[in-house]
Amino acid sequence: MGKGCRSVRATHCCVLLWTLLTLHWVSAEVMRRSIYFISGEAGVVTLPGPNLTNGAEFSYEWTPHDGRQKTIQIGTIQMSSSYSLWTFTANSYSQDSHFNISFRKVFDNAGVYSFKQTKPASVLLAQIETFAVKISPSSWHIVSLGADVPRSCAISRLPESVTLQWEKEGDPTPNTTFFYKNTASIVIHNAGQHCIGKYFCKVRGEREKLLFNNSRELSVAQDTYSSYYSLYRGSTNSSDVELACRFTGGYRGATWFWTPVSTKTQEKVASAGINQTAEVRKADGDGGRFSSPGFDGKDFPLRISPVQFGDAGSIHLLF
C-alpha cells in the first residue's frame, strides 16, 4: 500500500513538471517582429503568422499607435480538421495565406498586432509592431531656384532607443533641421545647385543600427523665369537672405523692385546693366545692408544682411 502511494505521488510530480516545462516552451516561442512601411504607397503590408496549427480558435488584435483607441479585435479564426473559418470584424483587413493577414499602407493602420490562440487555452503566439513613415510632400517636384524648401518625415511611434533623422547623400543635411512630435523636418534655404541630390529619411536604433531608410530626389529649376516663392527669416543680427535671379535670355540690364508691407509703395532697390557695377539702394539707416555683385547677363543676385523686421514685403525683378 505504501509503495502504491509513493508511485502515485511520483507520477503526479512528473505530470506537473512536464506541464510547467511545456508552458515555458510555448511562451518562449512567441514570434516578435517590427515592420516599417511608407504611408500612401501602393500595395499592402502583410503580417506573417506563425506556422503553429494546434488549437481550435485564434484571434488577431490591434493596438493603434495613435492612442485614441484601445486594443481592438480585428478577426477570429476557427479551426477544424477539414477547414478554417475566418471572420473579420474590421473592414480594412484580409486573409493573405495560412495565418497571414494584409492591410493597406495607411498611416492610421500602424500599431501593435497580436496573434493569439484562444481555445483550448489563451496563448500569445505572435506580436508584430508596424511603424508607418510619412514623407511630406510625398512627391518632390522641381523647386524654384532660390526658394526655401520645407520637407518633413513623420513616424507613427518613436521608441526611446530609436532616432529619426534626415541625411543628404554625400553631405551633411543643409540648413535648418528640427524635431517635433515624432516628426523630423528640414528647411533648405535658398535652393541652388548645392542642394540637388538625394535626401534620406532614416530610422536608427541602438548603436546607430539602420532600421529603415527611404529617399527622395531634390531637383532645382535652372532659372527663375515666372517663379514665385516665399522666404521666412528672423530679424536678428545674424539673419540674412539672398534673392536669386537667373535667366538665359539676352537682356542688357535688370532691376530689383521692393514693395514693403508697411507702405505698399514700390521702390527700386538695385539695378545694373550687363557686366556693370550694380546701383544699390542706400537709404538712411540701411548701413549697406543691401548688396549685389552686379548683372552678368544671366545672374543678378541681391543680398540683404542683416534682415530687419521692416524688410517684409514682396520683391520682384524686371529685365
Rank of each mutant, 00 (worst) to 15 (best):
K70T: 14
H194N: 14
G273C: 07
S102L: 01
E169Q: 14
W166N: 06
G111Q: 03
V162G: 08
T22I: 09
R6Y: 08
G2T: 14
R32W: 03
T19A: 15
T265Q: 09
A278H: 03
E279M: 08
K282L: 03
T248C: 00
K168N: 05
C14H: 10
T89K: 04
K134E: 15
I77M: 05
D66Q: 12
G294S: 06
L52P: 00
V112N: 11
T259E: 08
R9G: 07
E61G: 06
V8E: 14
A121W: 05
Y228W: 11
F200W: 12
V8Y: 08
E61R: 14
G310D: 09
F99R: 12
N91F: 08
N54C: 06
F309E: 14
D240I: 01
W256D: 00
H24E: 15
E129L: 03
A272H: 01
A10G: 09
E29I: 03
K298Y: 09
E41S: 14
E57P: 00
Y60D: 00
T277I: 13
G40S: 04
R281I: 04
G40V: 05
A270K: 01
F300D: 01
S34F: 02
T263Y: 08
K119F: 01
L16I: 14
H24T: 12
E129V: 10
S59W: 00
T89F: 13
S34T: 13
L16Y: 11
P150Q: 10
T183Q: 09
S81T: 06
F179Q: 10
A254S: 13
R204K: 15
R216L: 06
S235K: 02
A283R: 10
A254C: 09
T183M: 06
K268H: 06
M31P: 02
T177D: 05
Y229C: 10
T263R: 07
L124V: 12
I135K: 03
T236W: 07
H98I: 11
L164I: 10
T53M: 11
A221P: 00
T265W: 02
T76F: 00
T183P: 06
